[in-house]
Amino acid sequence: MATDHAPATWHHFDDLEHQQQTTLFGMWAFLATEVLIFGGMFTAYTVYRMQYSAAFEAASRHLNLWIGGINTLVLLTSSLTMVLAVHAARHGQRRATTTQLLLTAALGSVFLALKAVEYYLDYRDNLVPLYAFDPAEWSALNVRPQHVELFLIFYYCLTGLHAVHLIIGIAVVLVLAVFAHRDYFTKEFHSPVEAWGLYWHFIDVVWVFLLPLLYLIGSRAIVG
């Protein structure tokens, strides 16, 4: 039953082409669900962003824009390598596919590593509610600490959810790279790479929304 040998058409499809289209459509449908997951979070975030704009903007200014910005570049580049991987897979180029997939996974990992550093810096800067947080610091800025905590919890929830998606993405891309290396994909059969390529771009797009919502809402002078 299972597809343990390269290009396999399942018994319920007419042909390989049919199966590939179906897979891609399935991924699109899944991404629709994902949009609503992040959409729900964004809605909740927006409600409080409107209500407590001063606190949210003040807290936003304390986030590390440098890391956020560099990470955006890293992730955008990874989308480029993903596109190249899909392109290579379509043309049946085994080595190029493998390399580009590995590059994509590597860039994803760089993003995560930088994110981890950023979380540590947040901790050092007293930006972690409950563990490292100084209410007085915020009262001095004339914003309520509770509202800052709200912003921060959304920051961790949203970036955390994004990171979880990225971890899954990296794991899948690595598996795809192994399969690509073993010559599993052909000119005719490459829908897994394409489908997960869509997923990868989705993660990327989510980050493009996260960056302005979390890092850029408070106007600030660029500081090092």
């Binding site: 629709a32 669900t33 994902e34 609503l36 997951i37 959409g39 729900g40 979070m41 909740a44």
Partner: peptide, 10 residues
Amino acid sequence: LLATPVLTVA
């Protein structure tokens, strides 16, 4: 597909 994720978020 479109409603369940919002419950998850809530």
